[in-house]
């Protein structure tokens, strides 16, 4: 997996929210078909990293290359058209749109996206809820909807921000299973997570982020052996 050319390469990425300097030189990479997580405490800069890749955070310095070409200079709305999908933290389901409208909102950016029927197969809970206002769904269902609407666009590189936050264990398992399906379909995923067990169940590699810098990289196979090291980072 590591030998092939990296799909995404982030090097020495700095990022700012207004005046406050949040990212201090993030460097990491993601290969095609991998699931890679960013682990770290609250405020370490994981979410900001995803936002910087999407261009939601505008004030950036450093390099972000996707499929070999620079994307930091692209206008924000052009980034998704490279096939990059974004599932934001707190899901970003629109209250004034019903479930179907939420699902159909992001434009199809590439061929090969999932059809509505495939989506309902993957997330049966969403079936038959078309006319329900988006935010009337339960938290787990909203998370599924947030993932589903990106799968429809044909994006094959997905940034997923804390999909398990605040969800019951049963729902977390369902979401893990659906991510496994996506992996089998060949999708690449960057996952921001706090839930270590969930991360370990699906990821290939883990990056540990502290104060806006990647401080360690751990392959999933050696994760059980590295728990002490990891716990000291995360302060569990």
């Amino acid at each position: 997996m590591r030998e092939q050319q990296h799909l995404l390469e982030v090097s020495n990425l700095n990022g700012w929210y207004g005046e406050s300097h949040v990212l201090h030189g993030m460097t990491f990479n993601v290969g095609a078909g991998e699931i890679v997580t960013l682990l770290g405490r609250n405020g370490a800069g994981k979410t900001t990293t995803l936002r910087a890749i999407m261009g939601v955070v505008r004030k950036r310095r450093g390099a972000i290359t996707y499929k070999g070409s620079d994307i930091i200079s692209l206008p924000q709305h052009k980034v998704p058209w490279l096939g990059i999908g974004y599932v934001p933290e707190e899901r970003g389901i629109f209250a004034t749109l019903n479930v179907l409208e939420n699902l159909m909102l992001p434009p199809v950016t590439q061929s090969g996206g999932m059809g509505i029927d495939d989506i309902y197969q993957l997330f049966p809970n969403l079936r038959g809820r078309d006319q329900t206002p988006g935010t009337r769904l339960s938290g787990g269902e909203q998370q599924m909807l947030a993932i589903a609407r990106i799968l429809r666009t044909g994006a094959d590189f997905i940034l997923l921000d804390e999909p398990t936050e605040g969800l019951a264990p049963v729902i977390v398992e369902e979401i893990a299973a659906s991510l496994q399906v996506l992996k089998q379909r060949g999708l690449t995923i960057v996952l921001v997570e706090q839930n270590l067990r969930f991360a370990a169940s699906i990821a290939d590699r883990h990056y540990v982020v502290e104060q806006g810098v990647v401080v360690d990289e751990i392959a999933n196979e050696v994760l059980p052996a590295s728990m002490d090291r990891l716990n000291s980072y995360l302060g569990v």
Binding site: V56, Q76, H77, K78, V79, P80, A95, P107
Partner: peptide
């Protein structure tokens, strides 16, 4: 509701 997210969807 959320212009920045809509922009992140490519609009």
């Amino acid at each position: 509701e959320n212009p920045s997210l809509v922009q992140a969807f490519g609009i």
